[in-house]
């Protein structure tokens, strides 16, 4: 959580494998393969789903909570719409919003972390102080509050989830940057009086790529869970949108009558999170060379 801890948990001094190398290394691990297959499958459902759906996502097929039948293989939801169709339509928002929130969070976090880690001045203290403060925020609570205040806009939800990711990514990046900037070749580059931004971009960032890829997977899984929790509390996407998290919320009252409308979106959400975890674990193993799991604090 604080500066102390991150350096403690930081990587060793050796030069880390860069992005492409570690991609190849990671692929050797079973976790990565399984993770990639699962993730691709979910993304495929999300992207291609709407074209395969037997009905329109707002079309009424049967009475609400209808049992599975020839017309609706997995029954109907709380409004009598086809569950399969809703599932096929409902992945896009989850996939896109979770990816976007991690990307935004990483961009913010990496920028903060790089500057803090490399500046070694008061700026470091200020930036890391800021992340400490943001870390102290009860993230889910404030997200709930802001969504209640400003309305459940998708951009707002993405931004709020992203802001929650940023501090930890910033801390990780800073720790790695501190380590990397002590490496000989970086010191050499400094000695050659190369501009700082070039050293950051060309020497340090590639060196961070693998641990950040590990982090990406972890963060993606967290995003998925967070978006689902928001939908569960009613502060996520709003009807009549088809969305996995919203489906769970809309149909949970009939979980023991028409379980499919809840169980399938639960499964797709959990699989998506699982896939992200496994990929990041594969990277972690490739990177650390030991059995270290890809989950860090």
């Amino acid at each position: 959580m604080t500066a102390v801890a991150d350096t403690a948990a930081g990587p060793s001094r050796r030069r880390a494998p860069t992005g492409l190398r570690s991609l190849a290394d990671a692929w050797k691990h079973l976790q990565t393969k399984v993770g990639v297959i699962i993730t691709l499958l979910i993304v495929l459902v999300a992207v291609a789903g709407p074209y395969l759906a037997p009905y329109a996502h707002t079309e009424f097929v049967d009475l609400p909570f209808g049992k599975p039948s020839g017309d609706a293989w997995f029954g109907t939801d709380n409004l009598g719409r086809d569950v399969l169709t809703r599932v096929l339509y409902g992945g896009r928002t989850v996939v896109v919003m979770s990816f976007l929130s991690v990307v935004v969070g990483m961009v913010l976090g990496i920028a903060f972390g790089l500057v803090a880690g490399y500046s070694r001045t008061w700026l470091d203290d200020v930036l890391m102080g800021t992340t400490d403060i943001v870390l102290a925020f009860p993230h889910l609570l404030l997200t709930l509050l802001f969504v209640a205040m400003a309305g459940p806009h998708k951009w707002l939800i993405v931004l709020l989830v992203a802001v929650g990711h940023a501090p930890r990514i910033a801390r990780l990046t800073r720790g790695l940057t501190l380590d990397a900037s002590r490496l000989e070749y970086v010191e050499a580059a400094e000695a050659m009086a190369l501009p700082r931004w070039r050293i950051l971009a060309s020497e340090i960032l590639p060196n961070l790529s693998t641990p950040l890829m590990v982090e990406f997977g972890v963060r993606l899984a967290i995003s998925v869970g967070m978006l689902a929790a928001l939908s569960f509390l009613g502060a996520g996407l709003q009807p009549p949108e088809a969305d996995w998290g919203l489906m769970i919320n809309e149909n949970r009252s009939a979980l023991n009558v028409q379980p499919w409308a809840v169980v399938i979106p639960m499964a797709t959400i959990s699989l998506f999170a699982l896939g992200a975890y496994l990929i990041s674990e594969g990277f972690a193993r490739a990177f650390a060379g030991v059995d270290r799991q890809g989950i860090r604090t």
């Binding site: 899984a221 998925v224 869970g225 689902a228 929790a229 569960f232 769970i248 949970r252 979980l255 023991n256 809840v262 639960m266 959400i269 959990s270 699989l271 999170a273 699982l274 975890y277 496994l278 674990e281 989950i295």
Partner: peptide, 21 residues
């Protein structure tokens, strides 16, 4: 990791059905 991927409310919903109702 699979358990880890389950959101808390999913765990709760399942527990209620299994042991509560």
């Amino acid at each position: 990791p699979a358990m880890n991927a389950l959101p808390a409310f999913v765990v709760g919903l399942v527990l209620v059905i299994l042991f509560g109702t």
